[in-house]
Amino acid sequence: MRNLGPILVVLAAIVALWYLAAVWMNAAWVHDQAARDGRAVTLAELVPLTLTQERPVLPAPHQVAKGLYDGLFGQKVTSKRSLVYHAWVTLSATGLGFVIGSAAGMLLAVGIVFNRAMDLSVMPWAIASQTIPILAIAPMIIVVLNSTGVTGIVPKAIISAYLSFFPVVVGMVKGLRSPDAMQLDLMRTWNAGALTSFAKLRLPSSMPYLFASLKVGIAASLVGTIVGELPTGAVAGLGSRLLSGSYYGQTVQIWAALFAAGLLAAGLVALIGWAEWVTLKRMGLAR
């Protein structure tokens, strides 16, 4: 664990900066209150007052930590106040969206590699799809699907899939094309058909590329789900926690939800990383 020292130093620096910023940004409110009461505050009085506010502009790290801890462990997991409950709602839509998105991405990639017409036509559309702000298109998807009777996690999952298919397409196309001319020639000398070359050469070659893009894809899936939760009337999910927090000025709640989302993303990426390690090890590609 030789790396632990530098990591802790950086972490400590971030926390220290955060405290400084919290004091600086929350001081205005303390000064306002004091002016209203006709008092002056000293620095010694100011600091604790900036770090204990109920609705600070920037909550201090310990406030966020407490909010996060309360949300995760302080409630029954079925409670509407539990971050575990909300994270689960978000996670289920993320999972479904990721499965749809990565499956679509892989299928499109296979089509692009094998079909010249798809090669020329699909990629520009895939790129164009990602230039549209997801915030603009998400409410439309929700409204359109709602009017056709599709509700629940499916609309969110589709927004999530919309974001996650793209990295998978790009990575998988690159991976399927990674065998060089010599390896493809070798296949031809054995009189192997396109299907055999795909199964024996292209698909295994694409695995390292696929996993790299799945990691990006699952993080994008989570972002998509949270964005999808913002305009849904926000009943459940980390997105709704963010939204209700901002309605009522509950900054601690917003930050706690943000950190919960961050933890969830880290966990999901780690999960893909683990699957990658297991797969590549079995293939003899991990050293």
């Binding site: 010599m182 390896q183 070798l186 031809r188 000398t189 009189n191 050469l201 295994p204 003899g284």
Partner: peptide, 20 residues
């Protein structure tokens, strides 16, 4: 070629890293 008349060896071994 279809009757497997020849084996071909390239300059690089071109072994698949994922196969023994």
């Amino acid at each position: 070629r279809m009757r497997r008349a020849y084996g071909y060896v390239f300059q690089a071994a071109g072994l698949y890293p994922w196969r023994s």
